[in-house]
Nucleic acid binder design. Structure first.
Length: 269
DNA sequence: ATGTTGACCTGTAAGC
DNA sequence: TGCTTACAGGTCAACA
């Protein structure tokens, strides 16, 4: 569900309620998410959350003894509510702060995760991630250099977290359309100039989506329950069979790596 | 090594 | 009205 913009919107929404606040309780109603929630996560109770950060699509609640790591998977959502608000179906975890707020993780499909990381036990999930697309680490020629001799489709390539993080299916489709690149092309056969354009497009589309509060397709919402408004700016995602916004030809809807891929055979080469 | 596929799980919509 | 199938924002392990 959430790609980088939606995770960042969630981070911005929960940060004021968590940062510099003490954790009073971590209540687990369903420990079996993507992985079993470790008992060590209870080490957060009694600690002060020093910072709320993000790496890739992982949210990081940092305290002195360790970091609570939250991933929203495909259907996860975070809300901040007053303590005692009624639980709803698929509320799996709640974190209660000394300010009387309850952070709720709701995740119908349970592909999300809650993990605990310490200096002694770094998480493998965070170990081999590529650069953050909205920082200097995502260099202009990074994609070009990494793609040489790669035969996989360029869409699969930019969705690979080892190459660059945070580009999920929505924004991969959008960025490739905006760059005029056919998503089926082998990553290794694309020019340096086109990768520079794609790099810039990935930066701008992600930043724009964050500005708009993310993309709400069905169930994503901000921590205050409000939807994001980027869905109305989507050019191709979910628009298969409709006219291309640029040339009016019918948009193709195919599968690449088991993910729906929408593109224009005229505008994307 | 690289590329591809199945698996995890629930909800919803479409087709018969 | 059912029942079955396909698909959905992600990622990881197991294969060829």
């Amino acid at each position: 569900m959430p790609e980088l913009p939606e995770v960042e919107v969630s981070r911005l929404g929960i940060q004021p309620y968590l940062e510099n606040h003490q954790v009073v309780a971590l209540n687990v109603f369903q420990p079996q998410l993507r992985w079993l929630i470790p008992n060590e996560a209870q080490d957060l109770v009694g600690e002060t959350i020093r910072a709320v950060k993000r790496r890739s699509k992982y949210l990081l609640l940092e305290s002195d003894p360790g970091t609570l790591v939250i991933h929203l998977g495909m259907s996860g959502n975070l809300r901040v509510l007053p303590v005692g608000s009624p639980l709803v179906k698929h509320d799996h975890v709640e974190l209660i702060t000394s300010a009387g707020q309850s952070l709720r993780l709701n995740d119908p499909r349970r592909f999300g995760a809650v993990l605990w990381q310490t200096a002694d036990a770094p998480l493998s999930q965070l170990a081999h991630l590529g650069p953050e697309p909205l920082t200097e680490d995502f260099a202009d020629d990074h994609l070009y250099i990494k793609s040489r001799n790669k035969k996989a489709a360029v869409k699969t390539f930019i969705m690979d977290n080892r190459i660059v993080v945070g580009v999920g299916n929505i924004y991969a489709n959008e960025a490739l359309f905006m760059s005029g690149i056919d998503p089926r092309r082998a990553a290794g056969g694309i020019s340096k100039a086109r990768y520079r354009l794609l790099t810039e497009t990935i930066r701008t589309v992600l930043a724009r989506a964050i500005e708009q509060g993310g993309t709400t397709l069905k169930d994503f919402s901000r921590a205050d329950g409000q939807p994001g408004y980027f869905a109305q700016e989507l050019a191709v995602y979910g628009q298969g069979g409709k006219p291309c916004p640029r040339c009016q030809r019918v948009l193709d809807d195919i599968r690449i790596g088991q993910r729906s891929t929408v593109f224009c055979k005229v505008c994307q080469t």
